[in-house]
Amino acid sequence: MNRLEQHLRAVRDQGRKILVPFLTGGYQDRDTFVRLLLACQDAGADAVEVGIPFSDPSADGPVIQATSATALEAGTTADTVLADVAAARARGLEIPAVAMTYYNPVLAAGGPGFARRAAGAGLDGVLVVDLPAEEAGEFAPAARNAGLGTVLLVAPTTPEARIPGVLARCSGFVYCVSVAGVTGDKRPAADTVAELVARVRRHTDLPAVVGFGVHDPASARAVGAVSDGVIVGSALLRAVDGCTGGAAVAAARSFLGGLRAALDKRAGA
């Protein structure tokens, strides 16, 4: 079992809700990005998702589109993101890190070769948004051989009959997409999320973590109550937007601290 899955299963089995922030790699600049990774850990995140920016992020809403464009303009590549994760590891980042990206930058970075370099840099898993189960066979074996978890999405549109096939290719955790939409777009409805997570849990005991639309302590608490935890990206990046350097790091720590407290309150209640 890869380290990502081991760690998240352990968190869940302790009765703690999983908190996974998403950061756009190289945003706002390389140094701030490394400090933001460490801030996630300081604020009580259980893992972190690292976006490798792509020029054409068709599954992302306006916030991640904008942070991706900023990062690319500053010269961010798959390899600078891996180097930054390695730098954060050297500075004490211990929580698992999952690369989240699109397939084209992965292909350009060498496909299987990218998987090996990612593992070497201290990544623990990979989620390629535009590799659904049908196409996962092209990259998932290389990722698994490199020791990476291969996270797949389950969406509200996914019929139950598809779920076993998706899960057969999925490891680390199941990324449950709370709403049919793009990142940061709509607000999830608690009953829809509960129904989705229940559908997933009928087929696996992998941690079921919910992303898309979790934006504040209240929504984190509501979604966490019916799942194993939450992923938060656009709202975190929005909280960071408008300040730079140390202030941005402080903003991230404060925002995530609020989510952590909300999740913990629910878990202890």
């Binding site: 590799l131 659904p132 049908e134 196409e135 389950v154 969406a155 549109t157």
Partner: peptide
């Protein structure tokens, strides 16, 4: 869940899960 719609090495269905159904 097998790959569909390939023409030699090209084609396929490289979309997010939400759109596959």
């Amino acid at each position: 869940l097998q790959p569909r719609g390939h023409y030699g090495p090209f084609g396929g269905q490289y979309v997010a899960e939400t759109l596959m159904p």
